[in-house]
Amino acid sequence: MKSLKTLYIGAGILGTLIVAAIFAPLVTSYDPTEQDLMQTLSGPTGAHWLGTDALGRDVFSRLIYGARVDLTIGVLAVLLPFIIGVSLGLMTGWFGGKFDSSVMRVVDTVIAFPFYVLAIALVFIFGPGVKSIIVAITLVGWVAYCRIVRANVLVAKELDYVHAARLTGLPTRRILRRHLLPNVISQAIVFSMSDIVLSILAIVSLGYLGLGVPIPTAEWGSMIQEGQPYILQQWWLATIPGFMVVIVGFALSLIGDGLVARLER
C-alpha cells in the first residue's frame, strides 16, 4: 500500500506539471519570448513572479513554456528507442542464433560510445535541434530495452505457458505478441521512467551548450546558460530551471518505484 502511495504522489506531481504546461497560456499571461528591454533583470514582483531575465522576458512564463518543450521532447525521445529495443529484444531472445549474436555485437559497439560524445557528433552532422537530439537518443537508447527484454524472454520462453502456446500450434507472431510480450515488458516500462529523466538531462545539457533546442524558445537548459552570468545578483535565474528538472526526476522516480511495487503484487 505504501508503495502505491509513491505512485500516486509521483503521478500527482508530474500531472500538475503537465497540466500547467498544456494550459500554459492560462497559467501565465506573458509570452515566453517577448522582450521588455525597459525592465530587464527585475527581481520578483507582483507582475513578474520570478522576475525577468537579461532580455526582460518573464522567467515564470519561460519556466512553464519550457516544461512544454523539455517534457515533450523527453517523452518523444524515449518512445522510439522503447519500440525498437523491445521488438529487437523479443526477437533476439526468441530466435537466438546468428541473428541474436549479430544484434548483440551491435549492442556492444553502441555501449562503447559515450552518449554525450555521440550526441555532440550527431549534432555536428545534422545541425543543432530537436531532430538531432531524438536521433541521438534513439541510436543509443534502444540498447537498454533490447537487453532487458531479451534477458526476460530467455527465461520466459522455457516456461510452461509458452510451451503450451507452442503446442497448440499458434503462429510465432501471435505467441510473441499476445503471450510473451505482456509478460516481459514490465521491466522495460519501469526502466523507461528513469530513461525519460536521462533524456531530459540530455536535452538540458545540449541546450546549455547551445547545441539543443534553438534559442529563443524557452527551454530549461538554455535558461541555465543564460542565467549563469548573473548568478551572483539573480541566483534564481540559473537555479530554478535546474530545480524543475530535479522535480521531474523525483516524480518519475516515485512513479517507477510505485510501478515496481504494483507489478510485483
Binding site: Q228, I231, T239, V245, V246, I247, V248, G249, S253
Partner: peptide
Amino acid sequence: IGLGMPQVWIGV
C-alpha cells in the same frame, strides 16, 4: 533526488 540533477546545473 540526485539522478535528476543536470550535469551543467550541478556545475553552475
